[in-house]
Design a protein around this nucleic acid. Sequence first.
RNA 1: GGCCCCGUAGCUCAGCCGGAUAGAGCAACUGCCUUCUAAGCAGUAGGUCGCAGGUUCGAAUCCUGCCGGGGUCGCCA
Length: 592
Amino acid sequence: MNIFAEFHARIAALLQKMGAEGRLPASLDMARFVVEPPREASLGDLACNAAMVFAKEVKASFSNPRQLAIELAAALSEMPDVDQAEVAGPGFLNIRLKIEVYADILRAILREGQNYGRGASGRFKATKVNVEYVSANPTGPMHVGHGRGAVFGDALANLLEFAGSQVTREYYINDAGAQVDVLARSAYLRYLEALGEAVTVPEGLYPGDYLKPVGAALVAKFGESLRGKAEGEWLAPVRAFAIEAMMDMIRDDLAALNITHEVFFSERSLHDTSNGPSDVATAIEDLRQKGLIYEGRLPPPKGQLPEDWEDREQTLFRSTRFGDDVDRPLRKSDGAFTYFASDIAYHSKKIAAGYDVLVDVWGADHGGYVKRMSAAVAALSDGKVALDVKLCQLVKLMRDGEPVKMSKRSGDFVTLREVVDEVGVDAARFMMIYRKNDAPLEFDLAKVIEQSKDNPVFYVQYAHARAHSVLRQALAVFPGLDVSPARLAEADLALLDDENEWALIKLLAQYPRVVESAASAHEPHRLAFYLHDVASFFHSHWNRGKDQPQLRFVNQDRRDLTCARLALVTGLMNVLASGLSVLGVKAPEEMR
RNA sequence: GGCCCCGUAGCUCAGCCGGAUAGAGCAACUGCCUUCUAAGCAGUAGGUCGCAGGUUCGAAUCCUGCCGGGGUCGCCA
């Protein structure tokens, strides 16, 4: 039950009725106006800007927006659940609901449990959506930056699913470029090492110790059979083996963050020609049919010219037709396809799979790539499929306010796994979502495990634990009390007599709207901030009980009032647990 | 130099496809609590929303141009 969406629909119906009566234009775009919580709670429960938004369209029938607002207010005032509807300022419509509406909402929360807030509501349109995230190169362990994209993508996928979309979580394995050959050579070196040879890792190969077990595993599988062979003979098998080993490691690291992808898509498979033309060739042919491929020259890049720049004619995709800055090459000078060509084929496969929306989560260093990819998706899908690229900024790893040194030299850097092992999944996940994706993130290893109100992870989890603690306490005072949600929903909520109790319920009533807006904006951090707000309000109300014992949730002299308050606490617990689960963070029953 | 992201209180950041007097936490200042409902509480102060224009009933939000920070700039992924 989304009260904001509900009233948006009612007001839209009123406007349509006026349209049918010829007093307004018949085709107003109802998506243009909003029903939202007013800035000041004292103004009411709902605020609507419809009259002002349609100021131009209503000029013929109304002398000013206020007049339309007044008429809407009059109609709304007639509705049984509306206490008061009035017009403020230039035409704001402020609506105050009868208190029973919120009692109903609380009962709905208790009844629906973890389904409260689930499903498409309001503006969010449920679609078939593909979220591609992580896609770290299979050449080594993931670092903290990968972790941010991983957590962001996973939380977004959860959020979209919760909001009603059909979601596929996907990982694109870059297993086709030169870097996996480097991986293979590096692993081969460790293979020789495992056979007893003394090796030093030359410049240009991956030096990390993590390849030593791979070397040993190669010995276990191939024995000495690869020793002394030409590279052409061992490269492919070693490469395949090493990539598989790296992917196993990456999957383990992701599992430690509670992240599981449904699809792992191999870039290499796009180049497979065993069943006719490769997917890359097919995708480019598709674009050629659309007249978007040509042979031509590009102007040299501005600024610092690459050393090996040569002016040559090449195969280009006309991405400028879709808003890109220059047309983009599809073949390297050696004739092989560029990475971009693979990516075109990859997205073409996703489009063919019938997704309405594609989300790519990338590191901020790939920002320059967004326009060409959007152009490609627009071209391939004839503008029917939307691509939203979410760029995640860097993570600055700190400890007690001091930056943690991360030298990439000698492969000695802080891995994602080390961080997760140190602070735990919950802290890692919550902190990485508790920031907009395109803002840099400071991640302080000491602060995220601190048990204080300054630590948002703890603060929100503790609110949930505290709610459970209240229930435990109630059971101690009233042994055998039935505190199941179903039973509490029957409590006499009219006994709730403190305005903050109702304010808390109103905050819980916003949950579906928060889900809707966070999902449609692809911004899971909004949910994290909302949960922090809810926790904050709850803690603050709980603390009032210190000075004013009559406000405490458990009142041993008044079983009926206690039950009403437990209904509130349980509803709150429900929303916190639901939101945390969407973010992939545990909702503990106690903090010990 | 082109393109992308960022610029909001001393610090770290929110501000929901334009909406009402721009918010929170930390730090600062002032009280309270010292034991109950376990990890303090309440309050005060603090902003030219980088700058300058523009769009309109109305701009932190949209547009243009600057300034500052970061990223990126045929064949790497």
